[in-house]
């Protein structure tokens, strides 16, 4: 039940192909190795990028996880904005949203 363990799980997943295999073949066994809260467990199982962002997962770790899930770039940015709207401000870490939710890229505004 800690942001540390939540990020540790994603760190291991992002960098290690054998962990990625377990993620797909036996997620329960993999998750049981980490001290996660029910909220964190559910966020990981559901790929809830918005909640993971609000919980304070470092953006670099979360970005790689979103890529692993096959989420397109501008969808990923939007999921974080939706997370803020649904769950409130980022609770920890240094990756808080500071721009009020606007898009800073012309390409993103067009989508």
């Amino acid at each position: 039940m800690s942001l540390y363990h939540l990020q540790k799980f994603l760190y291991e997943l992002n960098r290690d192909d054998s962990v990625k295999e377990k993620y797909h073949s036996d997620l329960d066994a993999l998750l049981s190795q980490f001290d996660l809260s029910a909220e964190e467990n559910n966020a990981l199982r559901e790929g809830d990028i918005g909640l993971l962002y609000v919980l304070g997962v470092n953006g670099q770790i979360l970005m790689h996880f979103a890529a692993l899930l096959g989420i397109e770039w501008f969808d990923y940015l939007e999921m974080m904005r939706e997370g803020i709207n649904k769950y409130g401000s980022v609770r920890a870490g240094v990756y808080a949203m500071t721009g009020g939710g606007e898009s800073y890229t012309a390409e993103g505004k067009e989508q």
């Binding site: 953006g59 670099q60 979360l62 970005m63 940015l77 974080m80 904005r81 803020i84 990756y95 808080a96 949203m97 500071t98 721009g99 939710g101 898009s103 800073y104 890229t105 993103g108």
Partner: peptide, 10 residues
């Protein structure tokens, strides 16, 4: 501000 909703802000 990479990997945040503010990505692209410079």
């Amino acid at each position: 501000w990479p990997a945040t909703p503010d990505s692209g802000k410079i």
